[in-house]
């Protein structure tokens, strides 16, 4: 079985993403911008991106077993994946989302 949803349904698969950040640091701002940019380009209309400040909602960070921020978590489709650190490189974000590069 493939890691992703069946190929025929790829265009319909919904993505549920969470981006954990530390307030409004430059890195947080860049991460939000970059992830939204990639989602708009590749997943337009079929993704939901939740941005969570770990200072404001640390209990969510705990349930996610987070170790650092920023972290992008792909919660759906399975398998869950996470990407920690620099989000400014598109190929890294795409790999984190399990999407083919380019």
């Amino acid at each position: 079985m493939s890691e992703e949803a069946p190929a025929g349904d790829v265009a319909q698969v919904l993505y549920l993403l969470r981006l954990y950040v530390t307030g409004n640091t430059p890195r947080s701002l860049r991460a939000v911008e970059a992830v939204r940019g990639v989602c708009e380009e590749h997943l337009r209309g079929r993704y939901r991106l939740e941005v969570i400040d770990i200072h404001q909602q640390p209990e969510l960070a705990r349930s996610e077993q987070l170790v650092a921020a920023p972290t992008l978590v792909k919660r759906h489709p399975l398998p869950a994946r996470r990407l920690v650190g620099d989000m400014s490189r598109n190929d890294r974000v795409l790999a984190g989302l399990g999407l083919p590069a380019g």
């Binding site: 530390t22 890195r27 770990i54 200072h55 209990e59 960070a61 170790v67 921020a69 920690v84 620099d86």
Partner: peptide, 24 residues
């Protein structure tokens, strides 16, 4: 990859889940 990101200073915060609760 997470370790690399932390070592290379790509993160703003570390989350430690201790007995006192989550600490950022």
């Amino acid at each position: 990859e997470t370790l690399r990101a932390i070592r290379s200073g790509e993160v703003d915060a570390l989350v430690i889940d201790s007995e006192q609760g989550v600490q950022v």
